[in-house]
Design a binder for these strands. Structure first.
Length: 949
RNA sequence: GCCGAAGUGGCGGAACUGGUAGACGCGCUGGACUCAAAAUCCAGUGUCUGCAAAGAUGUGCGGGUUCGAGUCCCGCCUUCGGUACCA
């Protein structure tokens, strides 16, 4: 028997498309359920087998929810702006719009073969002007708002301006880049440019000179989360610090809310931990140290005010604005030299030389407000300008870095904590010493005491500091959303008129990055507007479109609003979001931030966009390679079979990754090359034409390695190695698997690989098991001649038990997201029914429905054969569940002192008492007990009955 | 270093609130069908002892709680992921 899965798939794909079964509307009485996939970036290499893992899981949930009576929104789209398309354009001169379009077509074709139930009428593309009109619009809203710290929300900038007009900065508490106090008179008297500069300190989207991550190779700046260990995440190019004027988003204003609201989310602990580490809240105090012989003061932030008696010197970041003012004339040369030295050090050098302390003395002294001692002021690059205040009080007695610095430069060290045995520096344990009024207190007692003292003496204030910095928003690249801002002749930034949105990305034929400026800067006729203004030439970063795309799906064709009010209020938020962990701090943080901003404006009903988040693990590719002798005795290359490698030493051989499409049994323990495979290899690399293959028992076996363990490929970054990619010629096209085994098999196989969240290597061995299962399942409904054969006979108790147990298990599994065990349960049921030779409608019909989320094609086909109106949708009948569950009978093992003695059956709905009496009634019980006294009867509902004697 | 997750057969992995550890699948062994192979079906398969019945042992290591621990508690070890001069 064979299942004609290709025929079935073609038939149902077109049926679905024709009837538009997966279209949904917000005008629906059913409760909504929104299942979202992280939309892909359409790369040139197409979808590989790792991509659909999460999509399959989300499709199963969507179908399941749809069958359980929910109105399910399950859309798909493309994150289509970005660097790779542009890099490709630079190399090939193909316009990014064209290559993107082609790639999307390929992706959609691949996706359609897997049987997803997307509502394609809602497809979005971030590079589509109809879409980025609203990306630009949201950006302008951010530009026109500031963050009010009293009301704890975003407020229109016009309110702030009105306040300035009347009372200056008095009574304003707002998130700002730079504290700057002025009166209403002062405000009214300054120029528009000066006003603009001040307002920039408040806007949620603002321009500012900041130290940025400049990537020379990519010709653009990058956000912190796009930089990994001093290299760009995309491409792995070196990144350096550079001061530039850039757009940023004031995400830091939302730090506290982004942190607190994590509590209400159904996300994994590790995901929440990553976000909360990135936000990096720390409590402490901010206080001023006065500089001796001047009226200047240096503001510092510390989390350990209790150690202030041990502050024996101060350190400023080399870029700190006060450095030049306080440096004494005799130290100027030293300080300048050190500043120059720091500039030449790349981010990478700094990270590499972590333990090496460097610095220079300014010649100036400050006064420790508690000890009254005069302490030296140094500069050093271990103090960062953009964290805290860019200055610290150094306590070598209880801070490892300060101690290392003090040791290197012979600065005084005062112990302030008497640590218990085994106590380590900085671990907040022990009693205070040498600390005036704090002496004898434990650290946790000393902190509040000193804070009170600091506030009473008006030396400073308590302060909560966040590590999270504002997100740099400008990119000096072409393929992105243009920033809808114009500058007048004074350089004042103006939002372009809302009615002029979208600001279309102009055409270009030279995409090369141009030094510090975007390629758009070369289009002078575009840059200079008819109104005499100059356009901003930067574009938005990759995360712009993805920060709100999930809202656009709710109403993708709306031209008057980012999404209609009714639609947004119906769909509200994403109930289930599935995607990879790599977006933990980038996309997910920005999306939460934008959503909160829109919520502040009353445009979205919920404070959080993604209620539940599930991270699918990566499918790691297996790299297949041949072993080639380094030395060529005959002049031709010679390859050694993997099974014979043990006899050679490592340095005699070199490993060469080969395309996995040449390989027989790819991914399994004994993959090998057939003659045909060797021919393909030779066609791929003609220089192997006369190669000799040294085989074991007539077969040439291959070596293999799981990506991520690829230590030989150290030159690539982890994220590149971690994903299946072109580099190792091991992209497996889902189309190939679907063609070979069918879409249902591919779907179930990917789920059967293991828990969704776990990373796992692509291993095709188990695919045969799933394929066999589907054949067996199909055979339940068909006779030997493949004729549909079903009886109306009444089911037996045993058959009912199998059905009900399966319904219960499958529903539980899906609710718990345990999709791999769910498939095991289908397999068990099928095996059991096969043994009983059960061909009864009453048993098999519900099973077709149950398996539909996993194997939609086969179930549609079977459902039709059952004579149901061919479906528009498979509807789940809850009656199947309810009516039959009442009769459910489960066998419970009966144990005496932990040893199994017999099995007894019970009604599943029975209560404990009932079960207890049944046990005691049993004849055999007396024999087992042998006259012994029962100490205890333990009844575990649904499990077992344990009798202790 | 800090934060998080996880360690179970030859392999992928089950075991939901403590309750017959190893479900289900792969692989392997034997058998049936076949001239033969493939496919399919049946039986077996943690380890050790034993012909068998059976017994012992077994979820990274060491302790503990419990009638009972893969699961809970304490102390370690290892692997993976994130992050790091963050004051």
């Amino acid at each position: 028997m064979r299942i004609d899965f290709q025929g079935i798939e073609t038939k149902w794909k077109s049926a679905w498309e024709k009837t538009g079964v997966y279209r949904v509307s917000h005008e629906d009485a059913r409760p909504k359920y929104y299942v979202l996939d992280m939309f892909p970036y359409p790369s040139g290499s197409g979808l590989h087998v790792g991509h659909p893992l999460g999509y399959i899981a989300s499709d199963i949930i969507s179908r399941y929810k749809r069958m359980s009576g929910f109105n399910v929104l399950h859309p798909m789209g493309f994150d289509a702006f970005g660097l790779p398309a542009e890099q490709y354009a630079i190399q090939t001169n193909v316009h990014p719009a064209i290559s993107t379009e082609n790639n999307i077509r390929h992706y959609k074709e691949q996706l359609s073969n897997i049987g997803f139930s997307y509502d394609w009428s809602r497809e979005v593309r971030t590079c589509d002007p109809g879409f980025y009109k609203w990306t630009q619009w949201i950006f302008l809203q951010l530009f026109e708002h500031y963050y009010d710290l009293d009301q704890n929300k975003a407020i229109p900038l016009s309110v702030l301006i009105a306040h300035f007009e009347v009372s200056g900065t008095t009574g304003i508490s707002a998130a700002t880049s730079q504290e700057n106090l002025f009166s209403a008179e002062a405000w009214r008297s300054i120029s528009p440019k000066e006003k603009d500069d001040i307002l920039m300190n408040y806007r949620l989207a603002y321009r500012k000179i900041s130290y940025v991550n400049w990537c020379e190779a990519l010709g653009t700046v990058l956000a912190n989360d796009e930089v990994k260990e001093g290299f760009s995440e995309r491409g792995g190019y070196p990144v350096e610090r550079r001061a530039m004027i850039q757009w940023s988003l004031r995400i830091s204003a939302y730090a506290e809310r982004l942190l607190n609201d994590l509590n209400n989310l159904d996300w994994t602990d590790s995901m929440k931990a990553m976000q909360s580490n990135w936000i990096g809240r720390s409590e402490g105090a901010q206080l001023d140290f006065s500089v001796n012989g001047s009226d200047l003061a240096i503001r510092i932030f510390t989390t350990r005010p209790d150690t202030i008696y041990g502050a024996t010197f101060m350190v400023l970041a080399p870029e700190h604005p006060l450095v030049d003012q306080i440096t004494t004339w005799d130290q100027q040369k030293m300080i300048q030299q050190y500043k120059d030295f720091v500039k030449t050090r790349s981010e990478r050098d700094r990270l590499a030389a972590t333990k090496q302390m460097t610095g220079a003395f300014t010649g100036a002294y400050a006064t420790n407000p508690f000890t009254g001692q005069h302490i030296q002021i140094w500069i050093a690059d271990y103090v960062l300008m953009d964290y805290g205040t860019g200055a610290i009080m150094a306590v070598p007695g209880d801070d490892a870095r300060d101690l290392a610095f003090a040791n290197k430069f012979n600065l005084p060290v005062v112990e302030v904590i008497d640590r218990p045995a085994g106590g380590e520096i900085g671990d907040k344990s022990g009693k205070m010493i040498n600390s005036g009024s704090l002496n004898g207190l434990n650290v946790p007692e000393a902190i509040p005491k000193i804070l009170n003292e600091i506030e009473q003496r008006k030396l400073g204030t308590r302060l909560v500091q966040y590590k999270m910095r504002d997100a740099i928003y400008s990119r000096q690249r072409y393929w992105g959303e243009p920033i809808p801002i114009e500058y007048d002749t004074d350089g004042v930034a103006h939002a372009i008129d809302i009615n002029d949105l979208p600001l279309i990305l102009p055409d270009l034929d030279d995409f090369k990055p141009g030094g510090n400026a975007s390629p758009l800067a070369r289009l002078t006729e575009w840059v200079n507007t008819p109104g005499g203004q100059r356009r901003d030439t930067d574009t938005m970063p990759g995360y712009a479109g993805s920060s709100w795309y999930f809202l656009r799906y709710m109403d993708p064709w709306n031209n008057d609003r980012f999404a209609g009010e009714e639609e947004v209020n119906y769909w509200r938020d994403v109930d289930l979001y599935i995607g990879g962990t790599e977006h933990a701090v980038g996309h997910l943080m920005y999306a939460r931030f934008w959503h909160k901003f829109l919520h502040d404006k009353g445009l979205v009903p919920t404070a959080e966009p993604f209620r539940r988040l599930v991270n699918q693990g990566m499918i790691q590719g297996v790299i297949e390679y041949v072993f080639m002798y380094k030395e060529r005795t005959s002049g031709h290359p010679k390859f050694l079979c993997a099974k014979l490698v043990m006899t050679k030493s490592d340095d005699q051989l070199v490993r060469i990754a080969i395309p996995v499409t040449f390989v027989e049994n790819y991914g399994s323990q004994d993959s090998y090359l057939t003659t045909a495979g060797i021919e393909k290899l030779i066609a791929w690399r003609p220089e192997y034409a006369h190669a000799f293959f040294e085989c074991s028992q007539g077969t040439y076996h291959l070596g293999k390695m799981i990506e991520g363990e690829a230590t030989d490929f150290k030159l690539y970054t982890q994220s590149e190695i971690g994903k299946m990619g072109k580099r190792f010629h091991n992209v497996v096209d889902p189309n190939d698997i679907v063609a070979q085994h069918g879409a249902d098999c591919f779907r179930m196989y990917e789920m059967f690989l293991g828990p969704l969240e776990q990373a796992k290597p692509w291993d095709t061995r188990n695919i045969d098991g799933v394929s066999r299962f589907l054949k067996k399942f199909w055979s339940l409904f068909h006779d030997e001649d493949d004729k549909f054969e079903i009886t109306d006979a009444a089911p037996t108790r045993e058959e009912l038990r199998i059905l009900h147990q399966t319904i219960k298990r499958v529903r539980d599994d899906i609710e718990r997201f345990s999709l791999n065990t769910c498939i095991s349960h289908f397999m068990m049921a099928t095996n059991d029914l096969k043994k009983l030779n059960c061909q009864k409608r009453m048993i098999l019909e519900p099973l077709v429905l149950l398996i539909a989320p996993f194997a939609p094609f086969i179930s549609e086909e079977l459902w039709e054969e059952f004579g149901h109106p061919s479906s528009v949708h498979l509807e789940f009948y809850p009656e199947y569940d309810a009516s039959l569950a009442a009769e459910d009978v489960i066998l419970y093992p009966v144990c005496i002192n932990g040893k199994k003695r017999a099995e007894a059956s019970f009604d599943v709905n029975a209560d404990h008492k009932h079960m207890e009496s049944e046990v005691l009634k049993m004849d055999t019980m007396q024999k087992w007990l042998d006259g012994q006294t029962i100490k205890k009867i333990v009844i575990v509902p649904g499990r077992m009955i344990n009798i202790v004697i």
